[in-house]
């Protein structure tokens, strides 16, 4: 094949224009910055709307602070299961007073069952056992059940506030709010 016959493709862009029409280095960096800024703004906007999504306008969950009735409604030495379904708490009353236990197992978060004959909370997932006080004594649970803030309202009813929890292993069960003397 002759060298003259060889087809040499020519760039079509900027063919009709002179050098002024081409993008020089300075404007290239300018356009690049604008492009990246637009990209960052768009992803940032999406990200913000995603974060916003985590905080819903309406929350269909029971209030975190609620009244559970008067102390006389609760029998001594018994675990009250009435608030387990709605509020995820057990209310226990003993000779000295009352406390509210979380129904979340401290091992992996299943809901234990109260076995009234054995007098213990027993988790059906991995066999953790807790005494009526909430102290862990068998199975893999590493720490006791958490207690919630409990107090008396002015009308004589007991208020449980789940916003504040007390961990035994940090010595928080000594605090006054974790136990209601009756």
């Amino acid at each position: 094949m002759n060298k003259d016959n060889k087809f040499i493709p020519k760039a079509s862009i900027g063919k009709d224009k002179d050098k002024n029409g081409q993008i020089d280095r300075k404007s290239f960096i300018g356009w690049l910055s604008i492009g990246w800024l637009a990209f960052a703004a768009a992803t940032g906007g999406y990200f913000i709307s995603m974060i916003r999504f985590l905080f819903p306008n309406v929350l269909f969950e029971p209030p975190q602070s609620f009244k559970i009735g008067e102390p006389s409604d609760f029998e001594k030495g018994k675990v009250d299961l009435r608030f387990k379904k709605q509020y995820n708490i057990w209310v226990v009353r003993n000779d000295e007073g009352m406390y509210a236990l979380s129904t979340v197992c401290t091992h992996l978060g299943c809901t234990p069952n109260w076995l009234s004959t054995e007098r213990k909370f027993k988790c059906p997932c991995h066999g953790s056992g807790f005494r009526i006080s909430g102290i862990n004594f068998e199975g893999p649970a590493p720490r006791p059940l958490e207690r919630y803030k409990i107090s008396l309202a002015s009308d004589g009813q007991v208020i449980v506030d789940k916003n504040k929890s007390f961990k035994q292993e940090k010595g928080e069960w000594e605090r006054e709010e974790s136990f209601l003397k009756v």
Partner: peptide, 8 residues
């Protein structure tokens, strides 16, 4: 949440 199958 009030009734966990036993065993789970």
């Amino acid at each position: 949440p009030a009734s966990t199958p036993n065993p789970s």
